[in-house]
Amino acid sequence: MLFWQILIDGFAISSLYALGATGFALIFGVSGVLNLSHGALMVAAVVAAWAAGAHLHAGPYAGAALGVAIGFSTSLLTYFVIVRPLQHSRKIREEEKEIFILTATLLWGIMIQELIAYLYTNNAKTVAPIVEGVVWIVGVRTPSNEIFTAVVCWLVIGLLWLLVNRTRAGKAVLAASMNPRGVTLLGIELSQVYIAVWAIYGVLVGIAGVLLGMFLGVSSYSVGPLTASAFAIVVLGGLGSVSGALIAAYVVGYLETMTAYLISPAYRTIPALLLVVAVMYVRPRGLLGRR
């Protein structure tokens, strides 16, 4: 019974992690940017979806749509206001740009977090679920919303796979992640690719955020832990590897769920973080890393 419970609960949360980390890995793979405002963007999407319901009396679909729209636009704002000026700066030496962008995105994330706390308090927010009720799966009472979450995550990941492998624009993105200079030689504007990647990332982050808001709920305090979990998953999977991130999301998701059920919910994140440290020692490039 407990086995099935862990299997089902772990699958839902892992799928959510997978979706969140995919975008994070994609950005790093293509532009070498570690976006430490990741958690803040997710929380912004949740709060927007919540506010749509609470203040504008929007239905669950409209709320979710607004949440995704805010995730999308905040992501592009992050790129244009924070990342791009630093990438193009002539005053910062090339080899120092990564650390500048790292710091800038971290501070940007904190700014968003504080703004949310100021405007909407630091109380937790949840998004009205699109599907309600429970279903019984092998004797486990499972919220329908949990199944919905897993299905949407995999649909979106599937669409992303199609986009990257089957469309011209997607192929350019894939090529850019393999060899940025080669892509420019083919006459593709690298900055166009970056914008495309940040746009895709924004949609992924918005969807992941809204689903998380329906599933567990977040507060402005969640910004740090959400960034940390995406970061841990991506390091475990291998920096820049999307398929590595997908596998790592399930490793981390199940490890957390098992800890919560078998030891204590208070220690939920600890074993996964220890695993990341261990991977850094033993296999620094992660499960499927190529750098």
Binding site: Q5, D9, G217, V218, A260, P265, A266, R268
Partner: peptide, 14 residues
């Protein structure tokens, strides 16, 4: 006693 950082209460309710 629940940790104030808890986000997923499923195991506790379970």
């Amino acid at each position: 006693r629940v940790s104030p950082d808890t986000t997923d209460f499923t195991p506790i309710f379970n």
